[in-house]
Write a protein that binds this DNA or RNA. Sequence first.
DNA 1: TGAATGCTTTGATGTAGGTCAAAAGGGGTG
DNA 2: CACCCCTTTTGACCTACATCAAAGCATTCA
Lengths: 238, 238
Amino acid sequence: MDLRQLRIACSSCSLRELCLPAGLEAREMARVDRLVNHRRKLRRGEHLYRAGNPLAVLYAIRSGFMKTCALHDDGREQVAGFHMMGDLLGLDAISSGRHMCDAVALEDSEVCEIPFAYLEQLSRELPSLQHQLHRIMSREIVRDYGVMLLLGTMKAEERLAAFLLNLSQRFAARGYSATEFNLRMTREEIGSYLGLKLETISRAFSRFQQDNLIEVRHKHVRIRDPERLRLLIGQQCP
Amino acid sequence: MDLRQLRIACSSCSLRELCLPAGLEAREMARVDRLVNHRRKLRRGEHLYRAGNPLAVLYAIRSGFMKTCALHDDGREQVAGFHMMGDLLGLDAISSGRHMCDAVALEDSEVCEIPFAYLEQLSRELPSLQHQLHRIMSREIVRDYGVMLLLGTMKAEERLAAFLLNLSQRFAARGYSATEFNLRMTREEIGSYLGLKLETISRAFSRFQQDNLIEVRHKHVRIRDPERLRLLIGQQCP
DNA sequence: TGAATGCTTTGATGTAGGTCAAAAGGGGTG
DNA sequence: CACCCCTTTTGACCTACATCAAAGCATTCA
């Protein structure tokens, strides 16, 4: 095993418990190592894939931060999700063999390429890999239901609160601070994700700051009162 | 093979090309037949499962019409989807082993039960079954992106137009009329799905009727001008 | 270092859709 | 068959968020 191989082994990756091989045993992990042969670096703003591109590989985010955008024929688009280390991208392409959304790096990022055909083959041999893949796809479906709930039933400030708490929780799961982080996306991208305009996002941020729920300064956010933020979500009006 | 077995064989089911075994060869289909041992009948209003129920089986809708509802802790809920013959339900439960939404029959319905553990096992042996399962899960993810786009970027009438065209297209795919059908859900349920109030749905229906796009009488809908309906969706305002 | 550019904030005003209310159908049930 | 209840329609009014506009900051690049 040469150095290059070693460098991209899942078994020695710090994200292995968050990512595709979560829960695999050493012997299984060794086989998954061979699944991932390539990494790809992306500069901020660069597309990982675009709607229409044929599916060849899935991508596991190794570092950085990305967004996926759903698009309508008429040019409208909406941020469908923000993705960070350990997240698996490209699942939308399995149904038709072509990507159905765009994926864009919001900061310099690195992804591991997972050949999909090989993943299917290997997951036939490794039940726990198979199950993990199913869990990841199912988790994405559940996440989507959450976004629908947010877009369909919540008011502006509830949406932003939910968004911040979700980010916070995901950073925490990756060993970063749950209360202090930098936003990688613009107000406009947050707005797109939450079904709101950037001005509304900005105003909601200002209001949260006034109420001492958070401190925001440009991209930097500190959550001062996660409990009240959480409470705010339950407050569907009268 | 006794009569009971025969009765629920996928291989002789008229929905087989829409459902889980789509695209399988005869030999593979025979094995899938053994996957499905039970059917379950539901009366209108009855729950197929509720959030929190443990995952044991997935459900393929054999006949009837169902809704799934995503729910938030605070009691808010939203219709996450409407489902008809050939659709596979329960995928949300794979990630955690428990259902994350409710599924309710909107009319008397029948579903086939597919033991999930056995499905995973069999799909390890039948690559095309495995791939079809992946495609179905991916299709659900893509569908969800479409709903997000709808909820995040469209106006009321665009949403309703998109909803009607989607129903129309799905009925057509099942051999029913694309232009004339009965709605199985209430205005309130349509509203919930589309992130709108029932009054808004009602007004939009009236407006479409005035404009000769459709005829509506209670639950019965006839689409008179699908083309203009389609055009209406592209019309994001100035 | 300074100019250019792209974000963000904040204010003033407009409007799509929500809310409240009432009446009219329809369908199921005894 | 008649009653009741649930759904739907329609009108009048209200509000949360969008839109328009302008100024203030950062970051980048020359």
